[in-house]
């Protein structure tokens, strides 16, 4: 992984003349085409269909073209904006917690010298279990009367009577956020752990000789070296979290009183409860626009736009 090795770039085109350049292009196309065609087929086609759907008023099998009517309806609907707000709160809290706790755990695990693999697998487990299953087990643990969480909190005296965690707007939102934190931390931890292992030990040794405190070492060595991975990881995580559906669908279905109705849940409820497929598609397209904005940050962070995929 010596960086100087990578500067050679693609095989030199000019030296081989035009014919080879053409051949070169064809070879490139041959390598890239399969994925491109595949994605165009299985993503662009359904996405195009979803966009077309968003331009129609759809009642089951009957539909009529309404232009951007659904968009007007959606952006003037209070439910959309409150759902967007919920989405932002949910995403921001989850991602911040994933990063902070993930980094903390990575720092801890990086210092473990015994049974490293065992520890790593243990912490990865919440991420390996399917989110819907994880949410189901939490649903059971949070059960007000028979759940183990209320029992534990009551036995240590933290609460005096059972709490219906998913029954009140704020505690329901906090609950689904905590479950998503549980699920999402391991992946961030994995990224951070990988990042930590690339920081040369010599840097820390030198810092120690210079008398830097552990906090200073963290601030001036660890953080800067992890910055790139943190940005990439966070952006990926934002994209994944803002479109996350499973946990909330299983635990609250968006309630109570819409307190946990993030955009993907609103989309689902609009499509399959209200049977308004056109409006649902509109919400999806708008959500896509929001996520797209984040992806631009992501691309910038990866700097892939600048070096065109090679160094």
């Amino acid at each position: 992984m010596n960086p100087t090795n990578r500067t050679a770039a693609a095989l030199p085109a000019p030296r081989y003349g035009r014919r080879l350049k053409w051949a070169q292009r064809r070879a490139a196309a041959a390598f890239l085409a399969p994925a491109f065609i595949f994605l165009a087929f299985v993503v662009v086609f359904p996405l195009g269909q979803a966009f077309v759907t968003s331009l129609y008023r759809i009642r089951g099998l009957r539909s009529s073209f309404v232009g951007f009517d659904n968009y007007v309806r959606t952006v003037t609907d209070e439910a959309f904006w409150s759902s967007l707000g919920t989405s932002l709160v949910f995403t921001a809290s989850c991602v911040a917690a994933h990063l902070a706790i993930g980094l903390g755990l990575a720092l801890l695990l990086n210092r473990v010298t015994v049974a490293r693999t065992l520890f790593r697998i243990a912490f990865l487990m919440p991420w390996i279990i399917a989110p819907a299953i994880g949410a189901t087990i939490f649903l059971w643990m949070l059960e007000p009367q028979f759940g183990v969480i209320n029992y534990l909190l009551q036995s240590v005296g933290a609460i005096s009577e059972p709490i219906a965690w998913l029954g009140r707007p704020w505690s329901a939102l906090v609950s689904v956020i905590l479950v998503d934190v549980w699920r999402g931390v391991p992946f961030m931890m994995l990224l951070m752990l990988a990042g930590l292992q690339t920081i040369p030990i010599e840097l820390y040794e030198a810092a120690r000789i210079d008398g830097a405190t552990p906090l200073q070492q963290f601030r001036y060595i660890t953080l800067p070296n992890l910055a790139y991975l943190m940005i990439v990881g966070t952006t990926l995580d934002i994209i994944n979290t803002i479109r996350h559906f499973d946990i909330i669908a299983v635990m609250t279905g968006g309630g109570p009183v819409s307190a946990t109705e993030v955009l993907p849940v609103l989309l689902y409820n609009t499509a399959f409860r209200a049977n308004r497929l056109g409006e649902a598609a509109t919400i999806g397209i708008l959500l896509l626009g929001i996520v797209l904005a984040f992806s631009i940050v992501y691309i910038r962070a990866m700097r892939l736009d600048r070096d065109g995929g090679r160094d």
Partner: peptide, 21 residues
């Protein structure tokens, strides 16, 4: 009535009843 009504559907209601809550 049992607290937590906003999360109670059949499943929760019948659990409470079966466990004599």
């Amino acid at each position: 009535a049992a607290p937590g009504a906003t999360t109670t559907n059949y499943l929760e209601q019948t659990n409470l009843f079966a466990q004599q809550k």
